[in-house]
Design a protein around this nucleic acid. Structure first.
Length: 454
RNA sequence: UCCCCGAUAGCUCAGCUGGUAGAGCAAAUGGCUGUUAACCAUUGGGUCGUAGGUUCGAGUCCUACUCGGGGAGCCA
């Protein structure tokens, strides 16, 4: 079926033509003399298209009364300038075909619904302004991510989702097994002949490609079995992980900062209606904070950050001190203090995983976290330890079986190079860019403790 | 996993110190010469999250559980 997108119709270029469009009815208003107004949305843009029907309009079955909220229709009619307020053009319907009706039990009413309620109807919330806007922004961001790295000559790499690495340095993992539930489990009888898990990160695998192809990036799902119940955590989420040979920590930070700025700019340019919508409805400061992102990110070492926190006139629940983790309250203080994004680098080795490069001071590693206002940590990365002896010593320190990671340490045995990379939580980026407060609202089908269905 | 808050009509909520339920919106019907979360009128709609307990009597008090929200931990 040939039909025009509402986005293109509202651009006004089709005015004066007889066209066909298709979509879902948001609402209908009737008036006497056979006049009715249908608000039609097809997901191509935030705005609805107004369809006017009168006594001349033909229907494939029944009548205007059956064109209810939620119904799917296709409409043929004349695209005209609208005499009414609120829209430049509208369709004077000649024919309306009801493709699929929606009864009075259709859950989405023409009123505001709470996000909590919409989470319970994950399969239908896509029909709302909020969730269709999120979908368009996710799409735009994913496309821009590929374009950004392709323009820089990075290779798009697919790392495995099933992994045997039982210790990638991040959180609890989901086990993968083909054996029936409740059977006497033995690894020998299982599908892979060894324990297998869903990946928590493609980083280690990405390093093998970076150390052959130069600069690569992965963009795919990651899984964490942590029992985390917060508006910032998911059990299944999407992660972008660039990995670059010949990059040191400063190059890594430059890339991360430029990437975040480029993506924010792209959304401001590519989805202005959506950003205006989110600013109006969810966070009045959103537009302003996205614009402010073009200013240089504040960069401070972990040691400086601790100094700032120790001097702060703030009653922290966790006392800041050199060698301790930065807690949420500390991150919030730092981003509020500088009124923008902050990159913290050179963390104590004791709070970071084995693969990060040890500094000359013998105490810190070349790690960096990008912290955003409202969101907290959006990027975590580091320069990787490329010196074999130091890496092996660190692995032993962390209690990691070096034999299981022979393939990883081989990269240091043969033609080792300085290299760096980071991981960006895609949903946290979408949260930052939309102003949505709960991460469960920025992924199509959220998975978290106690929920894997619709 | 820990702390706090919540669960009453399809949705959002009210329901006081215990006396068996109410509003707005939605829906259905009717009215209204172009509306724009249209408007006006009428009607229908509820084992008050689940299971126990206290009481003559529980939406209301107590306990446990389930689910949801906020904060924390862990992290992207």
């Amino acid at each position: 079926m040939q039909y025009k997108k509402i986005k293109d119709i509202l651009n006004g270029q089709l005015t004066g033509n007889i066209i066909t469009c298709a979509g879902w009815v948001r609402t209908r208003r009737d008036s006497k003399a056979g006049f009715s107004f249908i608000e039609l949305n097809d997901g191509s843009c935030l705005k609805n298209l107004q369809i006017i029907t009168d006594s001349q309009t033909e229907y494939n079955k029944n009548s205007i009364k059956d064109i209810t909220t939620g119904s799917a229709v296709w409409v043929t009619g004349m695209c005209e300038k609208s005499p009414g307020q609120g829209q430049a053009c509208e369709i004077k319907a000649q024919k309306i075909f009801l493709l699929g009706s929606a009864g009075s039990d259709y859950p989405l009413q023409k009123k505001n619904h709470t996000l909590e309620f919409l989470r319970e109807i994950t399969h239908l919330r896509t029909r709302t302004n909020t969730f269709s806007s999120i979908a368009r922004i996710r799409n735009l961001l994913a496309f821009e991510i590929h374009q950004y790295f392709q323009n820089k000559g990075f290779l798009y790499l697919q790392t495995p989702i099933i992994t045997a690495s039982d210790c990638e340095g991040a959180g609890a993992m989901f086990r993968v097994s083909s054996l029936p539930f409740g059977s006497d489990y033995s690894v020998q009888n299982d599908f892979f002949g060894q324990e297998a898990f869903l990946t928590v990160s493609g980083q280690l695998e990405a390093e093998t490609w970076a150390c052959a192809l130069g600069q690569v990036y992965t963009f795919g799902p990651a899984f964490r079995a942590e029992n985390s119940n917060t508006p910032r955590h998911l059990a299944e989420f999407w992660m972008l992980e660039p990995e670059m040979a010949f990059y040191e920590l400063e190059d890594n930070m430059n890339l991360a900062e430029d990437l975040v700025k480029t993506l924010c700019r792209a959304v401001l340019a590519g989805a202005p209606d959506e950003i205006a919508f989110f600013t109006e409805r969810y966070d009045k400061t959103l537009f302003e904070s996205l614009n402010k992102i073009s200013m240089p990110f504040c960069r401070i070492s972990y040691t400086e950050a601790i100094n700032i926190l120790e001097k702060a006139d703030e009653n922290f629940e966790f006392k800041p001190g050199w060698g301790t983790e930065l807690h949420t309250e500390h991150e919030k203080y730092l981003t509020a203090h500088t009124a923008g994004p902050v990159i913290v680098f050179d963390f104590p080795a004791s709070v970071k995983p084995f693969y990060m490069r040890c500094s000359e001071d013998g105490k810190t590693v070349r790690a960096m976290d990008v912290l955003l206002p409202r969101i907290g940590e959006i990027i975590g990365g580091s320069q990787r330890e490329e010196r074999l002896e130091i890496l092996l010593a660190r692995m032993q320190e962390c209690g990691i079986n070096t034999e299981h990671y022979r393939w990883y340490t081989d990269l240091r045995r043969y033609g080792t190079v300085p290299h760096s990379g980071f991981g960006l939580g895609f949903e946290r980026l979408v949260q930052f860019i939309t102003g949505m407060q709960n991460i469960r609202d920025v992924i199509p089908f959220p998975r978290h403790p106690g929920r894997a269905g619709f």
